[in-house]
Design a protein around this nucleic acid. Structure first.
Lengths: 352, 352
DNA sequence: TTGAAAGCGCTAACAG
DNA sequence: CTGTTAGCGCTTTCAA
């Protein structure tokens, strides 16, 4: 490895007979300089293969052009997390466009760290919290209170008065499913929620609440609108639950699932019982990428949560905040109800 | 937001009546200083809420304590990528332990960027390329040639003389599957490989090659050991292929799949034909997390690729390189063949 | 339009 | 064991 002297802004100042101040202006496209000077400088930079040092820039400008990204806690190995990977994709692309870097910054938020320290460390210009649950609420509250650029996913939090969130319809799409079923003439429905070891039960409770609220609102019985929690890693648990629903006096006509593997299982079970999808029972599930569901047969109807878009939007919103551009950016990323074969737009016509 | 003066190393030098040099030594646990001084300094740092500025440290020390992580190109939305998410988890944890940050650095590698510029930008101390395919080989070659700390996943590349890779058995476990079937008395086997739009066909070819090589080695016919490529998003394509294999004169006795959703489909199809797993046909698949397969019924036998471990190991190796510790770290992360119900350890005994 | 010079906050010889 | 001092490479007034 050649130990050649690192070429700096001084070298290119020298090469062009200009001062480093001018070079700096040109690098940052800031202040005034003649077009002629600019092209001369750019030429010199290319010839000498000059690239500004990121840390020198940060130190002098007090900006890092870096976004801290906090993802759900990693140490527990869990099955496919489409949300995270899609969110990450979108965030990466957006960061590229806006010329920011993404720092995976779970490290800043160790229990001992104080928010002010995190801010003062000046490692990043802002933070994005992607679906991290409650564990980070404390940090988020402080960050937001300190007016440090912060964006998080999900519904707006009580302590957040400025809408620092990007919302993908999380609590909404399950409600909508129930509503749609109700309107399309599906009379017995069930909403399944998976439970995995060591996962926050809070999510499960939210779903349970949605179902209860819906029942109340429409005056439905437990039988007409069920909430069912099952153990993800115990296929029998799901199987028994589903089989029972399918064989009772008034069998379920539509089910909602939150995991693709479970959908596959559901398909197996239903077919094994000699029932048809969607004629005998309709199936709907959550997906985080657009084609999710197409690999099923019959193709699966999904509530497609635009996780990719959410990641993109989160970065846009954050950069807007960091650079105080004051643009009006929509915080809401609506999900799509993607009708496919497993759920008929109308219950009435399906048996024709 | 209070515009209070930022507290720096000078402030804490003043508060303790020491010089900044001593403070710096204590921050970095480098050089000599008395225990008494140390505790005094630490106390002062806590009281004043001091945190060193990351960019100042980088500028002065020419180290960033940051690792650039390059993941497979994101713009194409694809289904669940367990490898990536697990790899990322492991890398995050390792980086935490070793006190490094992870920078998602697809941005450095835009077509226009030259490797030397990337290095000179000094944004990171080293790079990890996780399963990025051939698109980055050019960069990797230059980086390695320039002796810049670099680690990548997969088999060692021809231009890499130093073993800068971490290997998870990728080309091996499919071979092993065939070998195990052969030994256990499964005589007709098929290895399925999914094909997704816009994905590199190269991966598919590697699998095809494995099958051909195995046939040659054992003197098997096409019927005894098949390679089958199917369209992931066209379930019928898989279904027809599998049904045919199952109904021919000498039906397949064991199949290998590379996608979980496809496994689910296979289960459906097999059961719908009135066949049993594993008595009539055994099923094995790749998984990237340990419990993957348990959600199937009967539980799925998998070749469990330790992606999490690979991520962890990659970071360890890279840091070892960056800090020139010269530790002997194993590059190989063996996969595990996890026997579960869908594949009997012995074909002979299963019908008892 | 350009230049001079004072930092930004920290590290690392070197001297004591 | 501790202090002095010269950078690290760039940004940013303030003058010219």
């Amino acid at each position: 490895m050649e130990s050649q002297k690192n070429i700096t802004i001084y070298d290119i100042a020298q090469a062009t007979n200009l001062s480093i101040a001018t070079i700096s202006r040109i690098i940052n496209k800031k202040g005034r300089y003649s077009a002629e000077t600019e092209s001369r400088v750019i030429k010199a930079m290319e010839e000498l293969g000059y690239t500004p040092s990121a840390s020198a820039q940060s130190l002098a400008s007090n900006q890092t052009h870096t976004i801290g990204l906090v993802l759900p806690f990693w140490s527990i190995q869990q099955p496919n997390d489409d949300f995270t990977i899609q969110f990450l994709s979108g965030a990466t692309i957006a960061a590229n466009h806006l010329k920011y870097d993404l720092l995976l910054d779970n490290r800043s938020f160790v229990p001992s760290a104080s928010t002010s320290q995190i801010i003062k460390r000046r490692r990043v210009d802002g933070f994005i919290f992607a679906s991290v649950g409650n564990s980070y609420q404390h940090f988020m509250a402080e960050l937001i209170a300190a007016d440090f650029p912060t964006i998080y996913t999900g519904v707006q939090l009580p302590f957040d008065r400025n809408g620092n969130n990007v919302y993908g319809g999380h609590e909404i799409y399950k409600q909508d499913f129930l509503e749609i079923c109700y309107q399309k003439g599906y009379h017995n429905t069930a909403l399944f929620t998976s439970y995995m070891q060591a996962q926050e039960l809070q999510m499960v409770e939210i779903s349970r609440q949605i179902v209860e609220d819906f029942r109340l609102k429409k005056g439905l019985t437990q039988e007409q609108c069920r909430f069912i929690m099952y153990d993800y890693y115990n296929p029998k648990s799901f199987q028994y639950a589903l089989e029972e629903l399918l064989t009772q006096k008034n069998p379920v006509e539509a089910i909602y699932l939150d995991q693709f593997p479970t959908c596959s299982q559901a398909y197996s079970i239903i077919k094994a019982m000699g029932l048809r999808i969607p004629e005998d029972v309709a199936v709907v599930a959550t997906s985080h990428y657009s084609r999710g569901g197409e690999e099923f047969s019959p193709k699966l109807t999904t509530t497609y949560v635009h996780s990719y878009e959410m990641g993109y939007r989160a970065v846009e919103l954050l950069v807007n905040k960091i650079e105080k551009k004051g643009l009006e950016i929509e915080h809401d990323v609506p999900y799509s109800f993607l009708y496919r074969e497993s759920f008929s737009p109308s219950k009435k016509t399906q048996n024709q």
